[in-house]
Computed example of a mutant assay.
Amino acid sequence: MKQYKIAAIGGDGIGPEMVAEGVRALQAIAERAGSFKIEVDWLDWGAERFKCSGRFIPEDGMAKLAGYDAILFGSAGAADVPDHETLWGLRLAICQTLDQYANLRPTRLLAGIRSPLAEVTPEALDWLIIRENSEGEYAGHGGRSHRGSHHETATEVSLFTRHAIERIMRYAFECAQDRPRRQLTVVTKSNAQRHGMVLWDEIAQEVACSFPDVRWDRMLVDAMTVRMVRDPGSLDTIVASNLHADILSDLAAALAGSIGIGPTANIDPSGRHPSMFEPIHGSAFDLVGKGVANPIGMFWSSVLLLDHLGEHRSAQILLGAIERVTADPANHTPDLGGTARTQDVTRALLAALSGDRS
């Protein structure tokens, strides 16, 4: 029997609550399958560790992660620690060190969930957003000078390299090639960002020559927001830079009903390092301890984790169970307009998994 080692990192805010629910789902699907086991180690990496030791991740932490098959992550961000400290000290530290350069954010209209878009159908809103996850606007280059003076200056330098653009474009075309519509939209802003984004466009054109069976087009990011709202059925697979995809994927989740249902996979396609799976909703300080946060984003992220491990059948079973849960409005948490609590949704999911043995 296969055994997978999973590192569970709750982080902060509602992250620990969500990871706990995700672990319950993973262990339930493993028990149902009977062909693999899930072994979970809980790592207390987050703001409390930082406030005590000055580090979010222990000195040997990254080496320790190398021994896991995957990472289940909650959220980075605490109300009493600056956001840039938590993001760079925890989540980005993991993604960049482990070269998780492909960030996957699928979006679809789940059963029973209404979109704010009138008349939209599940067939029209079924996207895969691929985010370049290693450089671009989040490269961390820049600095500040003349602090406190009238001439105080801050620079934030976007970094685009041929290596990183080429590999994410190739990955995006391959993902599009594997989807039924074989269609890719490349998001850019090369009319205003005349260096990095022009390189982005040029490499997209080069890589496209290797994928003649994929239809592709190019869209300026501001126009892309309009297209997502006005013509969702014209989109399928989408690739964008770090910042652009970060923003567009939040819009996508909102159009699909709630940011609480959006999943994320931070993938190292080479397989040299473990990949990390998390919901996109963030820390949600206003929901901490109330027991009403939506666990669907974590459950869907667990689907992506199973798929990445090669447990495709179990991934499909879990996704089917998620849709049976969301189909019933009694299982909708407040972000979806309902009154269900987090554990109500989890109980419904576990019942769906145990009740359907097809």
Rank of each mutant, 00 (worst) to 15 (best):
P106W: 00
R181C: 08
G89P: 15
L128F: 01
E17M: 14
P82S: 09
D201T: 02
I29S: 00
D231E: 14
P274S: 00
L98D: 03
A8E: 07
L117Y: 07
R179V: 08
A327W: 01
I259P: 04
T333I: 04
S275A: 03
R108L: 02
P334D: 05
S115D: 05
S134M: 13
D356R: 11
D60A: 07
H281R: 14
G46L: 14
Q100V: 02
M62T: 03
R341H: 15
M224W: 09
A7D: 10
V345Q: 06
L159Q: 12
E166F: 05
D83E: 13
R167G: 11
C209H: 15
C52N: 15
H281L: 11
R227P: 04
H151K: 13
S158N: 10
K5I: 01
E323N: 13
I261F: 05
A321C: 03
D178M: 10
D69T: 00
T185F: 04
W200K: 02
L220G: 02
L318P: 07
I322M: 03
S358P: 14
A25M: 10
E21Q: 15
L65H: 05
T225P: 01
T185V: 12
Q3N: 12
F73P: 06
H195W: 12
A76P: 10
T185P: 07
R347A: 13
D99P: 06
A223Y: 09
G15K: 13
Q205L: 13
Q343G: 08
W45V: 01
H308D: 00
K2D: 10
M224Q: 07
Y4C: 02
I259N: 04
R24N: 04
P263L: 02
S149F: 13
R131W: 04
A340T: 04
V19I: 10
K189R: 13
A76C: 14
I130L: 11
A204N: 02
F73G: 11
I130E: 00
A240F: 07
N191W: 07
A7H: 12
I38M: 09
L243W: 10
A293V: 15
L306T: 01
A254T: 09
S234I: 06
P334W: 05
F299H: 02
T161K: 06
G61K: 05
T333W: 09
L235F: 10
A8W: 12
L235Y: 07
E21Y: 11
I203F: 07
I71L: 07
A78T: 14
I317A: 08
G291P: 08
L72A: 06
H273C: 08
E202H: 08
E135A: 08
I38P: 02
R167F: 12
D217I: 01
I57G: 02
L248I: 07
V23L: 09
E206A: 03
R114S: 14
T185Y: 06
E202L: 08
G271C: 00
F73D: 10
T326R: 02
E59L: 07
H308W: 07
G289T: 10
R55N: 13
P106T: 00
S115P: 04
Y138T: 05
E132F: 11
M1V: 11
L65A: 03
N133H: 09
V226Y: 14
E17P: 08
W216Q: 04
A176P: 04
P329V: 01
T346A: 08
T121V: 04
A66E: 03
V221T: 09
S302Q: 03
M1P: 10
M298Q: 14
M276F: 10
P232F: 05
Q96Y: 12
D83T: 12
P16D: 14
A93P: 09
L336D: 03
